[in-house]
């Protein structure tokens, strides 16, 4: 019996850096929960290394970061740390206020998707589900 296909996606929803506003991350967490996912929800102000540790220990399929100030500037460091911990295949998405000029740099650094204010529930849920599924398949077929 293969159950991994039915196993709910596990998503880490968090905030890094200095800002604490969590209305957005709470709403997104609820969206994902209502879509049948398991959301590991953290306090704001996480350190990059702590996030890597949590993502690994919790065996998540995706990391979602909410950024309303300028904390998204730390994301390239997060991606680098994930790669260093051999979690480079873990998709990272960000939602919040990200200026266009920064968005390009984030995508180049490896962020898979930037959600801006006004992104719809469907868009968020379906993108997260697709990226999480992709990450799972990749892990499954990964050889060593």
């Amino acid at each position: 019996m293969s159950t991994s296909a039915q196993r709910p996606y596990r998503v880490l929803v968090s905030k890094i850096g200095l800002d604490g506003h969590d209305r957005g991350s709470r709403i997104v967490a609820a969206y994902l929960r209502d879509a049948g996912m398991e959301v590991i929800y953290t306090a704001p102000w996480q350190e990059v290394q702590a996030l890597v540790r949590m993502a690994s220990d919790e065996d998540v399929d995706l990391i979602g970061i909410s950024s309303l100030a300028t904390d998204h500037l730390l994301l390239p460091k997060l991606l680098e740390a994930l790669r260093a911990a051999d979690l480079g295949d873990l998709p990272v998405v960000v939602g919040g206020i990200v200026p266009d000029e920064d968005e390009q740099a984030l995508i180049e650094a490896g962020v898979r998707r930037v959600f801006h204010p006004g992104s719809s529930r469907d868009e968020i849920v379906s993108t997260v589900a697709a990226l999480a599924a992709e990450a799972r398949i990749q892990r499954k077929t990964e050889s060593f």
């Binding site: 929960r33 879509a35 049948g36 398991e38 959301v39 929800y41 953290t42 306090a43």
Partner: peptide
């Protein structure tokens, strides 16, 4: 839905 928010780590 089977979904959950797991917040105890906070």
């Amino acid at each position: 839905t089977g979904g959950a928010i797991l917040g105890d780590r906070v």
